[in-house]
């Protein structure tokens, strides 16, 4: 290993397996998420074992929160935000209910996702609007569109039998939603770790100038990322609509915040470049298990929110970077107080 002050101008020293393992673990960004998940699981085991015996329910809650979060992670990794995901979920659902044909409806929903992603990317990449603002605008626009198109009423699906069938398990406890969620996870994970374009997302988020200098087509990557995120959100919208047998222009009010929460708990840095799809999965598991556990024990929604907020803050606070920042700001203010008091002493 190289020492911090100096360079080893020879052969790299041999590494032991333990070294390698320790280093690999040290690199992972999911540590906190794993710790949180472990705690949540232990507490759930003690207080509400039903969380485990009813694991299909827990799984489907995880999939409900998690699918949108997976797509969101892609955008966050590039150092951008997409606040329009929840509205995309809703609009895609409404679009889907415009036709009686389920297959056509799903295509319409996904098409909506592609369009939304392109518009988001257009604002961010071409017009150069900060993604927070651009997608905040889209949040309202899309939500408004959904309400106008649906005339602010739920639209029941024509093929209700299929829709109800869709909500039921196909293999063992696995409903189509869970299967799609797992599939999306595996594909995204492979994309971000194995594919060239996916791996370059990290460079776009980690040091955009460096990415440009290295000849990475940054703009194209950004467009891809936004479209992926919106399409996944639209897919989630289609699944939601099928499961509830109707498109609902007011649904999804809780999706935006919980999907962000899942990503953040999973160790995805909002500044970009750091985090993983696996982390988001674990984050979604922590959050889903927590919610199901709390619901099962009959904790009121307001108090559930205190828990979730607490977990989120903990996840962020225990981030090594935040810990460092907190330490130094504490030191500065203490230093300032001390200096001020001596200041007065001398006057």
């Amino acid at each position: 290993m190289s020492t911090p002050h100096g360079i080893n101008f020879g052969e790299a020293p041999a590494r032991t397996r333990v070294d390698q393992l320790r280093r690999t673990l040290g690199r992972r960004t999911e540590g906190r998420a794993v710790a949180l998940l472990a705690v949540v699981l232990v507490v759930a085991l003690v207080m509400e074992p039903l969380v485990f015996s009813a694991y299909p329910v827990t799984l489907s809650r995880v999939a409900l929160v998690g699918l949108v979060a997976l797509g969101l992670t892609v955008v966050i990794l590039m150092g951008e935000l997409d606040l329009s995901v929840a509205s995309t979920v809703v609009l895609a659902g409404v679009m889907m209910a415009q036709t009686d044909n389920v297959a056509l409806g799903v295509l319409l929903a996904l098409g909506t996702g592609v369009a939304v992603g392109l518009v988001n990317a257009f604002f961010v990449v071409k017009v150069g609007i900060n993604s927070f603002i651009a997608t905040l605008g889209m949040l309202f626009v899309l939500k408004g569109l959904a309400i106008v198109i649906s005339r602010s009423e739920p639209i029941p699906l024509e093929n209700i039998t299929f829709a109800i069938q869709f909500g039921l398990p196909i293999v063992g406890p696995l409903t189509p939603r869970i299967v799609i969620f797992v599939l999306a996870f595996v594909l995204l994970h492979l994309f971000l770790t194995r594919m060239r374009a996916g791996r370059e997302f990290y460079a776009v988020g980690g040091n955009r100038q460096a990415a440009r200098d290295a000849g990475i087509p940054v703009d194209r990557r950004l467009v891809t990322g936004f479209v992926m995120c919106s399409v996944i959100a639209a897919g989630a919208g289609a699944i939601d609509t099928l499961e509830r047998t109707a498109a609902d222009p007011t649904a999804g009010s809780t999706v935006l915040l919980s999907s962000f929460a899942a990503a953040i708990i999973g160790g995805v840095a909002l500044t970009g470049g750091r985090g993983s799809i696996l982390g988001t999965l674990i984050g979604a598991f922590s959050l889903g298990t927590l919610e199901v556990g709390l619901t099962l024990t009959g904790v009121q929604v307001d108090i559930q929110q205190i828990y979730i907020g607490g977990v989120l803050l903990l996840a962020v606070m225990t981030d090594p970077a935040s810990l460092r920042a907190a330490r130094s700001s504490l030191r500065t203010s203490l230093h300032g107080v001390r200096a001020r008091s001596t200041d007065r002493g001398l006057t």
Partner: peptide, 13 residues
């Protein structure tokens, strides 16, 4: 890119 490995940074792009 700080979060990428030495190898990835060398081969970036």
């Amino acid at each position: 890119v700080p979060e990428m490995t030495v190898a990835e940074n060398i081969m970036l792009g």
